[in-house]
């Protein structure tokens, strides 16, 4: 008898969202009771924690955890009472991987796609130039799309949520202004744009001309990445991904955007004796 496991395994394999709630602490007879919840519509549940009211409350909580991609232990009474602690229910979310869309098929793109893959993202590389946006140049990406950024986001932007990221690496105003404007219409959690401080200032002015307000500009992480002295494409990819992690966890990390001065210090003068 392995119906519940089979449904769970098949959902995980096909990247369909599913949450497994299980009693891990409580009366002996309740231990190991399981409820599998799939978001709808309509919401589907399989199994039981042993009480209809408890199942109803845990289903609601599991859907909440799943929407946020979170895994947590919660305490309940035997009938789902919120303030009681008779049972500990472990709610594990199996959410589809977060998405990263990288605009611009440049050298930094390959490195960023690699690091993002390691972190578990589903990576799309998008560039309007067919010569550069090829699967052969970006074998690590899940999808390589030849399209204008705003056109692509018009198609997939509604899929983006707080766990997802859009990274604009083109640093060409003709691509990145429409990409950022379109990105700001989505619910994406991280929106970063590459470029020097001069490019960033110039871009801010163009974004304002395009109708972006202060709140919109504040969402854009640019210059992209943490101020860790990254130089190579790979180091820059780490700086970008580290910024995404810090943003998600709410940690106060040194973003380039919030600092001043050159992004790259002059390595030669640094080595000179003072």
């Amino acid at each position: 008898m392995s119906e519940l496991y089979d449904v769970l395994a098949s959902a995980i394999r096909s990247a369909q969202p599913v949450a497994l709630a299980e009693v891990v602490e409580g009366p002996d007879e309740a231990l190991g009771a399981k409820l599998l919840v799939r978001p709808g519509p309509p919401v589907q549940s399989l199994g039981s924690l042993g009480d209809a009211d408890l199942d109803r409350v845990v289903t609601r909580d599991a859907l909440g955890e799943l929407a946020a991609g979170l895994t947590a232990s919660r305490h309940y009474g035997l009938h789902g009472e919120a303030r009681a602690r008779d049972l500990t229910v472990f709610i594990e979310s199996f959410a589809p991987p977060p998405r990263m869309i990288i605009f611009g098929a440049v050298d930094f793109t390959a490195a960023l796609a690699k690091v993002a893959k390691i972190l578990g993202y589903r990576v799309t590389v998008c560039d309007a130039r067919p010569v550069f946006a090829t699967a052969a140049r970006f074998p690590m990406a899940d999808d390589v799309v030849v399209a204008w950024p705003d056109k692509h986001l018009a198609e997939v932007g509604h899929l983006l949520g707080p766990r997802d990221a859009v990274c604009v690496l083109t640093h060409d105003p003709k691509f990145d202004v429409p990409a950022i404007v379109a990105g700001l219409t989505t619910q994406v959690g991280y929106l970063g744009a590459m470029g020097s401080r001069r490019t960033t200032d110039d871009r801010a002015a163009r974004l304002r001309e395009a109708g972006v307000d202060d709140a919109g500009l504040a969402r854009v992480m640019g210059p992209i990445g943490l101020d860790i002295g990254a130089r190579t494409p790979e180091e820059t990819a780490v700086a970008i991904c580290a910024e995404m992690i810090a943003m998600r966890t709410g940690k106060d990390a040194p973003s380039l955007r919030d600092r001043e001065g050159p992004i790259h210090r002059d390595l030669i003068s640094q080595e000179r004796p003072s």
Partner: peptide, 10 residues
Amino acid sequence: IRVFVEPLDW
């Protein structure tokens, strides 16, 4: 860490 160990009979 707390680890929940169970037979896979479900």
